[in-house]
Design a protein around this nucleic acid. Sequence first.
DNA 1: TATTGTTATACTCTATAACTATA
DNA 2: TATAGTTATAGAGTATAACAATA
Lengths: 153, 153
Amino acid sequence: MPSSSRRPGIAFLLAQLGADATGRFADALAPAGITPPVAGVLRLLRVEAGMSQQDLARRLGVAPSRVVAVVDELEERGWVARTRGSDRRTNALALTPAGEEAFGRVAAVAAGHERAVTEGLAAAEREQLLALLERLAALRGLVPGVHPGYRRP
Amino acid sequence: MPSSSRRPGIAFLLAQLGADATGRFADALAPAGITPPVAGVLRLLRVEAGMSQQDLARRLGVAPSRVVAVVDELEERGWVARTRGSDRRTNALALTPAGEEAFGRVAAVAAGHERAVTEGLAAAEREQLLALLERLAALRGLVPGVHPGYRRP
DNA sequence: TATTGTTATACTCTATAACTATA
DNA sequence: TATAGTTATAGAGTATAACAATA
């Protein structure tokens, strides 16, 4: 519960709207039985198949042990396959056809979520806002497609 | 770790930038030995003195039991006093002079944080962005000054 | 000796429910 | 009986450290 001093500034509004968007996205995903971490991994593997779990952990900025649990769940659902990597220590991760379908559902939810979050803004306002947020994300050095953008060393 | 489909949209960028801002604010506050929840309560009590702990819990959207721990900490530091309310069951909460000083430090950190988050944007861009975020927060029905804006029922 | 995936453990944050004292 | 504050407990979520297999 951080707060603004008197009138909220940009930093506070970003924190507030970001928490709101994150919560709404999780809610929108819930009926499909998908959690945000699972959605994030599906997306990453769709773009870059063959990643190892260590690669995934580095890309997501989480501990490798955390990846184990998420991949376990994905594998139990038949959405991801752990196949042999070049090195016999590593798992090469890839989406199965069912995983591709699951990602399709995630993409549909994300599209609806985007509409819901920006509802009430005119098209010109949306473009303006998108451009400003993109610029700010670039200035802050945030990696496209990976949330949370903030990593503690 | 929610993610965008291909190119991040407004919803994803808000989530990403919001998480970044939240983390940076906590980091900026840490050297002063203050956590974000403590900062939020200091601010709320400064604006509305005499609140009960139940009032506080409702305003923040957290469980009353959570408020106990935060107020305990504030009281141990001598920043907040639990005084008798009209009803002998309730505590009327108020900032002490030391609490006012602590709030001053929080306000200074928040000001620096605002500058850091918006660094690199031109003054005109800042105004544009602030106006758009204010509009979006109003559209989403977010309560000014309270984070997180998202409450689960 | 170093690295990958795994397991075990602990820590943080928060909510729910039970308890007490008032009303 | 209902409500304010408190305490106890439990559930997420995550990190750290130890471990076995492989390099």
